[in-house]
């Protein structure tokens, strides 16, 4: 058995290797303060994260993407984390669920420390058992990137340019 703290440190190592960042926080209140300190405007919050935080701007239900395009900080919540790869699994059935993770500049993804699994295979097992989640689910591993111009790795293309996993301990 791998201990929870080993798993968390492995998760951290993998995530950092994928140019992601990590913060360990005790509560949703702390998470809010942390996220709010990252940008000049109020964080936008995905419907799932709003259920826990009960504050922040929600994307507009009618035109979710346009309403939050390029806001500086967004908060969403992952179903689970994967230590092997540093990935976070986002379950985002409708565009309104996805808006925050698609278009904000600095994305904060909350994940419970107990929701971190060892291997990607476990993540897929979870997904196979949750047909509703698989409607639109994404393993996100670090900020968006490209190496399309002369192989030069550039972080932040069309998605977020910074990504922080907020591990709730």
């Amino acid at each position: 058995m791998i201990s929870a703290s080993d798993r968390t440190s492995r998760f951290q190592e993998s995530l950092v290797a994928a140019q992601g960042e990590i913060a360990y926080l005790d509560s949703w209140d702390e998470l809010w303060d942390f996220a709010a300190s990252l940008g000049d405007d109020t964080p936008v919050v995905s419907p799932a994260a709003h259920g826990f935080l009960r504050r922040g701007d929600l994307p507009d239900a009618e035109d979710p993407l346009r309403s939050i395009a390029d806001r500086s900080v967004g908060i969403t919540v992952a179903a689970l984390g994967v230590a092997e790869t540093g990935s976070l699994l986002l379950v985002e059935r409708a565009p309104v669920d996805r808006a925050v993770s698609l278009l904000t500049r600095h994305l904060v993804i909350a994940v419970g420390q107990d929701d971190i699994v060892d291997e990607l295979a476990e993540g897929f097992r979870w997904l196979a058992d949750q047909p509703r989640a698989a409607a639109y689910a994404t393993f996100v591993t670090g900020p968006s990137r490209t190496a399309d111009i002369e192989r030069s790795l550039t972080i932040g293309v069309q998605g977020p340019s910074r990504l922080t996993a907020a591990v709730l301990t």
Binding site: S87, R93, L120, Y136, T138, F139, V140, G159
Partner: peptide
């Protein structure tokens, strides 16, 4: 996925691995 990103871009995993099942609402 164990084989693809490692062979393609030498990444452990690509940034986004997206699974879509059926039409969205």
């Amino acid at each position: 996925l164990q084989l693809l990103p490692r062979s393609a871009t030498a990444q452990t995993l690509s940034t986004y691995t997206t699974c879509i099942t059926g039409a969205q609402p």
